[in-house]
């Protein structure tokens, strides 16, 4: 409360304005506020313009999903078709397969990354040498900074049909070589390995940062009570970073229907034989846009992705708020 008053004093350059602002209502207050904070509102303008172009215009553009877009009538003149694009999406076996793959991969990646990252974070917390901690941390985050294009080359070095490293090893052990880019059954595992390799280090750093913020007094009290390191990790560290875990999981809920296009398109070299396990909504949409030029269906799929993600965030937030209010997002 004390800080609030001190801030209030900073607000009004001219002190005699203060009581007036509180007394007046409606348009006068609005105008006065706008005038008083003119410079601050001006600062929003560049960012707002970018948000408008990048985010809000496309959101208003989702009406395309309810149209049968053709080039003769143009986007605005094309006839309305209601939910036809959505029906088409759900009657299409490829689309259903893509939805299934997307959700399965998202859930798997999300849970495995969290489990591994928290584990790595907890182990990291036990490191005593600062130098080693720094070296490990630097090396672990590095893969996060590689683009999926680079990752696709790294994967190619291991899996290439012409002398990929794994095939070289298999051959030297007398095992038959595997044509990775045409055997769909291996790709779920490959994707999991790549995702963990790329994201666990970074994700762990976020949790480590969270653990660094825990008050050392908790641990000191635990030592006096004779708690082992394991008990401290279980009963202090984990509960203290729980809100962070929940918030990050909630946020990733928004992307449950969205997958990393690069992972599924570039890394698989867009190999058609693999679609059974590698086709996700994003690659499916991209193909229907590029090959079939089906704008209506592609935007219907995108609208569905966003809506489901949005609904999931809201509903899981409600659930979290019921269980423990302070952990919820809003």
């Amino acid at each position: 409360m004390a800080t609030q008053t001190s801030i209030d004093r900073t607000v009004y350059a001219d002190k005699k304005d203060r009581p007036l602002v509180y007394r007046q209502r409606g348009a006068t207050t609005l105008a006065r506020n706008l005038m008083t904070y003119k410079a601050l509102y001006v600062m929003f303008i560049p960012g707002l313009l970018v948000l408008l172009v990048n985010n809000y215009l496309p959101i208003f553009g989702v009406f395309v999903a309810f149209k049968d877009v053709n080039y003769i009538d143009g986007i605005f003149g094309s006839p309305w078709v209601g939910f036809h694009n959505f029906e088409f999406l759900f009657s299409n076996d490829d689309a259903i397969r893509a939805v299934r793959n997307t959700v399965l991969y998202s859930v798997t990646f999300m849970s495995l990354t969290t489990v591994f990252a928290v584990t790595v974070g907890l182990l990291f917390n036990e490191l005593r040498s600062r130098l080693f901690a720094k070296v490990y941390q630097s090396l672990m985050i590095l893969p996060y900074f590689f683009s999926m294009v680079v990752v696709s080359y790294l994967v190619l070095a291991f899996l290439s049909p012409q002398g990929g490293f794994i095939n070289v090893i298999l051959k030297s052990m007398g095992i038959a070589e595997i044509d990775w880019y045409s055997s769909s059954q291996y790709w779920p595992t490959i994707f999991i390995v790549i995702t963990l390799w790329k994201n666990v280090g970074y994700s762990a750093v976020v949790y480590i940062a969270g653990m660094a913020g825990i008050d050392p007094e908790y641990y000191e009290a635990a030592v006096i009570d004779g708690a082992s390191r394991w008990q401290q990790a279980k009963s202090i560290t984990l509960p203290m970073i729980r809100p962070l875990i929940i918030i990050l999981t909630l946020l990733s809920m928004a992307n449950i229907f969205v997958s990393d296009f690069g992972l599924f398109y570039q890394v698989t070299l867009n190999s058609g034989i693999l679609y059974d396990t590698t086709d996700v909504i994003d690659t499916f949409v991209y193909r229907s846009l590029i090959n079939l030029n089906d704008i209506g269906m592609a935007s219907a799929a995108a609208l569905l992705q966003s809506t489901v993600g949005f609904a999931l965030v809201l509903s899981s937030n409600v659930v979290v708020r019921k269980i423990s209010k302070e952990d919820s997002l809003f």
Partner: peptide, 29 residues
Amino acid sequence: RDLPYRQIFSFLLVFVLLFNGGTVTKYIV
């Protein structure tokens, strides 16, 4: 914290984290 209406700008920012129009409409824009 003293800026009036900042929640509006905050909302405009956070909303795009949770909902987007997708690649196709962005391409059209």
